[in-house]
Nucleic acid binder design. Structure first.
Length: 426
RNA sequence: GGAAGCAUACCCAAGUGGUUGAAGGGGUCGGUCUUGAAAACCGAUAGGGGGUGCAAGCCCCGCCAGAGUUCGAAUCUCUGUGCUUCCGCCA
């Protein structure tokens, strides 16, 4: 959420910053509502003050033998007069709040404006593997090697799903375990959150009210809850409505959860297999930091994500996203994209973002400054570390051999009982 | 899923309609005393949001949340949420 004071005092600046995200808003209506609200609030509060004063005088007047009924009448008149204004104020506040909640985060000043076409590759690791044989895609490899069962998944669930089986399930699980062990090594606290979250969690993360229809709702529950689209939604809500002490920051968390998303099926047919589904696995890392430490935290998290893909030995690139391609809630986002040989393109396996105080304002997540005693908003950051369901296709394709086998990356072997290679057995 | 109870500050806790601008402990912080510490004593510890003002200050809302009754609510009514206990069910 953007600070209304910033919008009021630096309208031009905010307008231009949002324009970089492709968001057009002149704030004329919002600022008019804001001015009206402040006037109304003043009127309502003054009336309230008068009312309080009169009520407090009742016991005093009573003791002195004065006329209480006169006071009653006066207060009643003030109340009646105020009622309409209070109702108007409530509507104004709701409208202003709705507008504010729907505004995207301000992009950092150094980002290029515009969308995808202005993303810039800032780093590349290795080169695209060269194959002197016809490259197979991961769907074919996974099916022939018995790693993934698409058909039976369609039977027991439906489209946009798959079943990991045998060495395929072990490979997926090995990735998760490898990442988990790395995060623990780096001092992150392991979290296993609920997968069903309440509405407020969606608001704090920045998902709601704008993208309510993008998640899966559990209608059987009251009040209804939704399945988390990423563990970030859970992790970034842990300290909602809390005032943390300065000493406990930064908080570093990570969690593995499946991610449930309704976007599957809406894309091009080239995105077969496990590139996009209703449910995929991901390990997510989140930090809560002080304002002046979030830039350093961002670098740390980017390096963490980067080193994970490096250790897997995969060819990938890092893109610094243009303002318009950053998530709605984020001030800056770098994507780590891994090479998918059969598609000839890079696919995102990690998104590293700094939300700055956008989520903290929504969820009232603050800390007390030790020196001044004042409360300040924390900064929240998140990064995938990493999306395993996107990595399996990359590994299977990049590590394929002419015989249709798949070499297991060295770092994963300890997590797979020492297996070095997946080959056709039947 | 059924029943009962509870919800006040960092913790315990008083408070059942009007000096409650929320008692009292504990803890924490500061001080006196002491070579230092403990003890004792003294003092400070109710947050947070918002409005207005150069500021000091003043004002509004704050006793889980939301409605309501009343001139006036921590105190009464309704709803919700959470926790505890019992029953049922179950991994």
């Amino acid at each position: 959420m953007i600070d209304i004071n910033l919008i009021r005092e630096h309208t031009q600046f905010v307008t231009e910053a949002l324009a970089k995200k492709g968001w057009n808003e002149d704030f004329k209506q919002l600022l008019a509502q804001d001015a009206q609200r402040r006037q109304l609030r003043q009127d309502v509060e003054n009336a309230k003050a008068e009312q309080n004063k009169l009520s407090a005088s009742v016991p005093v007047v009573k003791k002195a033998g004065g006329d209480i009924n006169e006071i009653f009448a006066k207060v009643k008149a003030i109340k009646a007069d105020n009622e309409a204004k209070e109702a108007e104020l409530a509507i104004l506040e709701a409208n202003i709040n709705k507008t504010l909640l729907e505004l995207p985060n301000l992009p950092d000043g150094d980002l290029l404006s515009g969308a995808k076409e202005n993303n810039r590759v800032i780093h590349t690791f290795l080169e695209a593997p060269h194959f002197d044989f016809p490259v197979k895609d991961h769907v074919e490899l996974c099916e022939t090697l018995g790693l993934i069962d698409y058909k039976r998944a369609a039977k027991i669930s439906g489209s946009g799903t798959w079943i990991y089986r045998g060495l395929g399930a072990m490979l997926e699980w090995a990735l998760l375990n490898f990442f988990i062990s790395e995060h623990i090594k780096d001092g992150y606290e392991m979290i296993i959150p609920p997968h069903m979250l309440n509405y407020e969690s969606g608001v704090t993360a920045g998902q709601f009210p704008k993208f309510e229809s993008d998640v899966f709702w559990l209608e059987g529950m009251s009040p209804r809850r939704f399945l988390l689209p990423t563990a970030e939604t859970a992790l970034v809500n842990i300290h909602r409505d809390e005032i943390l002490s300065e000493e406990e920051l930064p908080h570093k968390y990570f969690a593995y959860t499946p991610c449930y998303r309704s976007e599957a099926g809406s894309y091009r047919t080239e995105e077969r297999g496990m590139i996009r589904g209703y449910q995929f696995n991901k390990v997510e890392i989140v930090q809560y930091t002080k304002e002046d430490e979030s830039d350093a935290a961002f670098e740390e998290m980017l390096n963490k994500a980067k080193s994970l893909v490096e250790k897997l030995g995969l060819h990938f690139q890092i893109s610094k996203l243009a303002a318009g391609d950053c998530s709605h809630s984020m001030a800056r986002t770098y994507d780590i994209e891994v090479w998918i040989p059969s598609m000839g393109i890079y696919k995102e396996v990690s998104s590293v973002s700094n939300a700055r105080d956008y989520q903290a304002r929504r969820g009232m997540m603050r800390y007390r400054d030790k020196e001044t005693g004042k409360v300040k908003y924390v900064h929240t950051l998140n990064a995938s570390g990493l999306a395993t369901s996107r990595l399996v296709p990359a590994i299977v394709e990049q590590y394929q051999t002419s015989k249709g086998e798949v070499i297991i990356p060295t770092v994963l072997r300890p997590f797979m009982g020492g297996i070095e290679k997946i080959s056709l057995t039947k």
